[in-house]
């Protein structure tokens, strides 16, 4: 008599302790400094947007999991929470909450679940939600309010990059000071204003090896080179690269959006191509495009190329002759 009492499993039998949920929650933790900074700068409104975004994302995700007859436990793998947080960080603080809800539903539904859920999406879900809002409600998405900590008595207010693009701030000398950009005492989207808080979170992620260092390094260096060339040739027309690095959504984009594992290349060479492409496009849109900011569209644009990049950057197999495909 034979009883099959063995569980058959092929080697290796030991596993690293890291898991998808641990990675996701590490990203959530790394975003907390920037979340705290934005709540400090924009007060209650910021907190409300964060809560609405995360809650809506979780609810949408739950509905989709139910409809697609998937395991409801994967709701808590952390990916929907990240999408909610990241989307909230890219929204202007003055946005009304019903638009926030629409954006969050779109982020999860159009950005993630229609492709098949976690791991199958082509575009960064948070940026899909933001792009939808940007195109459907352009006025609401570009109405900025000054942070509570900044004393200004103007009815209209612009982001540092908006200032640069639409006002003659270089010749007037009214460019936003770098110190304010660094600490975050400027107008802009919730999470993008404080460079120091974003860098703190990014350091944690780099230390934890959650994100690929090549991507932020590639993006920032491509942007610095691109804007630097124009700054050196005509400094009266263009501003210096450091301003471009600290202003707008570059840091959050480079460290938290572009590095999203699902939508970035898996090969090291691919990561370089992807990152340099994003940096170059950001520079192009910021200097010559119609928008003051180009991080979102650059990342989404390069996202579309990721499957192609993965296909054409196969690493060299050990022992394979160079140049022979």
């Amino acid at each position: 008599m034979k009883e099959n009492t063995f569980i058959l499993k092929s080697s290796p039998h030991f596993r690293d302790k890291d898991s998808v949920s641990k990675i996701m929650y590490a990203v959530v933790i790394s975003l907390l400094p920037a979340v705290a900074a934005s709540v400090y700068f924009f007060r209650l409104k910021a907190a409300l947007i964060y809560v609405t975004c995360v809650a809506t994302c979780l609810v949408t995700e739950a509905i989709f999991l139910k409809v697609r007859k998937k395991d409801i436990r994967s709701l808590w793998d952390g990916s929907a929470i990240i999408t909610g947080l990241l989307l909230a960080m890219t929204l202007p603080p003055s946005l009304s909450l019903d638009l926030v809800i629409i954006g969050s539903v779109m982020a999860i539904a159009l950005g993630k679940q229609v492709f098949g859920g976690l791991g199958y999406n082509i575009f960064n879900p948070a940026l899909v939600g933001r792009a939808f809002l940007q195109i459907a409600f352009p006025v609401a998405m570009t109405t900025w309010v000054p942070p509570e900590t900044l004393q200004v008595n103007t009815a209209t207010f612009a982001t540092p990059l908006g200032n640069l693009k639409f006002l003659a701030s270089i010749t007037e000398g009214s460019l936003t000071p770098l110190k304010d950009l660094f600490w975050g005492n400027v107008g802009g989207c919730l999470g993008e204003t404080s460079a120091i808080a974003l860098l703190l979170g990014a350091l944690f992620l780099l230390f934890r090896k959650v994100i690929d260092w090549r991507i932020p390094v590639g993006i920032i260096s491509a942007l610095v080179v691109f804007t630097g060339v124009f700054w050196i040739t005509s400094p009266e027309k263009y501003t210096h690269p450091l301003f471009h690095v600290l202003a707008g959504g570059l840091l959050i984009g480079a460290f938290f959006m572009a590095t999203d594992m699902v939508t970035s290349p898996i090969t090291p060479a691919g990561a370089w191509i992807y990152a340099l492409g994003i940096g170059f496009l950001i520079g192009l849109i910021r200097l010559f495009g119609g928008f003051p900011e180009g991080v979102m569209f650059s990342i989404l644009f390069m996202n579309t190329f990721v499957p192609l990049i993965n296909r054409y950057t196969r690493p060299r197999i050990l022992g394979e002759r160079r140049g022979k495909a």
Partner: peptide
């Protein structure tokens, strides 16, 4: 088992 998140 999770789907591949292409972390590389």
């Amino acid at each position: 088992e999770f789907p591949c998140i292409s972390c590389g």
